[in-house]
Computed example of a mutant assay.
Amino acid sequence: PSLMPGGPRSAYEALEPMLRSIAAQVDDGPCVTYIGTGGAGNYVKMVHNGIEYGDMQLIGEAYDVLKTVGGMSASEIAAVFEEWNESNLQSFLVEITAAILRTSDDLVGDGSALVEKVLDQTGAKGTGMWTVQEAAARLVPIPTIAAALEARYLSALKEDRTAASAVLAGPSTDAAPSVTAEEKAALVAAVRSALYASKICSYAQGMNLIRAAGKEYGWGLDLGSISRIWKGGCIIRAVFLDRIKAAYDVDAELASLLVDPGFASELASAQSAWRSVVTTAINAGVSVPAMSGSLAYYDTYRRTVLPSAQMVQSQRDFFGSHTYKRLDKDGVYHTRWSSDGVTETQ
């Protein structure tokens, strides 16, 4: 397994030989490192699981788009994920997704894909919820992970969704879309880019939450070492983690993985396909909350000025005298918006 021990360093050092021997072994050593004092290890494990929620939902959305928009069969999509597992998307979750899609329903015995018979209600044990709660408490935005959690909650509303399907209209689409081979290939390539770009955003959000907690509690976390021990023995193990470690090795105080030059370049290259996939899914009535949440995160993070935030803060000052700051002047201000429009310096 990947081990994330916290607590007194002396305790870790006493147990280190045993921990190193039982941890998963990868190309650059055992998947264990001292995380930090107190509850640092438990916290990092919790956020690991939150990232896992995001990863799984993103893969699920990629599957939905290929199936529903692309009209692809389970075996066709399995071949896609097998190919992706030989690329920069190589991971345990991509690997098992291909295996799931290759599995036939042995109870019916008609050769149909088992995944298509599974009840569409996703369970949750609590670590995703705790991660979202912690992020909210620390003012750290993690929209991809939050969207993944809420997607599970929405999936649980099976009876409500079934009843709503008879009332709520969606876009007019064919039950079995007719897609040419060339269109399928283009969609597969676009979804691959969208999945990879969204994955970068999800990991960036999780690492930023770990960093925020580490600073608050004085854990002295090494984000590069943490990402390294996730390369084996855990659900999110992936070749992608080498890139994350390299980014933090270059700059341990990196504000976000999004601004690492390598990741920033890849996001720029992927964004056209990424936007296309989200738009195509929306137009087809296919919800992709984690992919679209990742894209919204990227677009918000890259903008110097947010007009929506300007409006919301002005509204707060209008109805609650919450004050505001200005872009062009120092100080704190309140405007009497509903009366004489006079602005006061607080």
Rank of each mutant, 00 (worst) to 15 (best):
G331Y: 10
I200W: 04
E16C: 14
R152A: 01
E344V: 15
V94S: 00
M129Y: 09
A284I: 09
L168G: 11
S2M: 12
M72E: 01
I51G: 02
T335A: 10
F263W: 06
K231A: 04
S73K: 10
C31I: 02
P17G: 13
V94T: 05
L114P: 04
L89A: 03
R20P: 07
V118R: 11
Y196G: 00
S225A: 15
Y43L: 13
T173G: 02
I236E: 01
D330Y: 10
I210W: 04
G50S: 07
L15F: 08
C234I: 00
S321W: 10
E16Q: 15
I210K: 01
I235A: 01
S287C: 08
S308H: 11
P289C: 03
D242G: 03
G39K: 15
C234Y: 00
V305A: 09
V26F: 13
K329F: 11
A169E: 08
A113R: 07
L241R: 02
R336K: 15
E13G: 09
D222E: 04
L19K: 09
G233P: 03
W219A: 01
E116Q: 15
A151Q: 00
A148W: 02
A186P: 02
Q133W: 05
R211T: 06
G293C: 06
G220K: 11
Q90I: 02
R243N: 12
M56S: 03
G39P: 11
A204F: 09
G218A: 14
A164F: 10
S112H: 13
V26M: 05
Y53G: 02
A136S: 10
T127A: 12
D105G: 09
A79T: 12
W274V: 04
M291A: 03
M72C: 04
T162C: 06
G41W: 08
A14Q: 15
S21L: 09
P5E: 13
Q313L: 13
A181T: 14
I35E: 02
A194W: 00
E344F: 15
S75L: 04
G224N: 07
T162D: 13
H48C: 07
M18N: 14
W230L: 03
A164S: 07
L327E: 13
D251I: 11
A213S: 12
L223T: 03
T173S: 04
D110G: 14
S314A: 15
Q205V: 07
A281I: 02
R302V: 08
N208W: 03
A255K: 13
S10E: 15
T33W: 05
L114M: 13
K325A: 12
M207A: 05
I210Y: 04
I244K: 01
L58Q: 01
Q121S: 15
G54S: 07
S193L: 13
D340S: 08
T345W: 06
V277G: 03
V94R: 00
L254C: 06
Q346K: 14
T280E: 14
S256Q: 09
A135V: 06
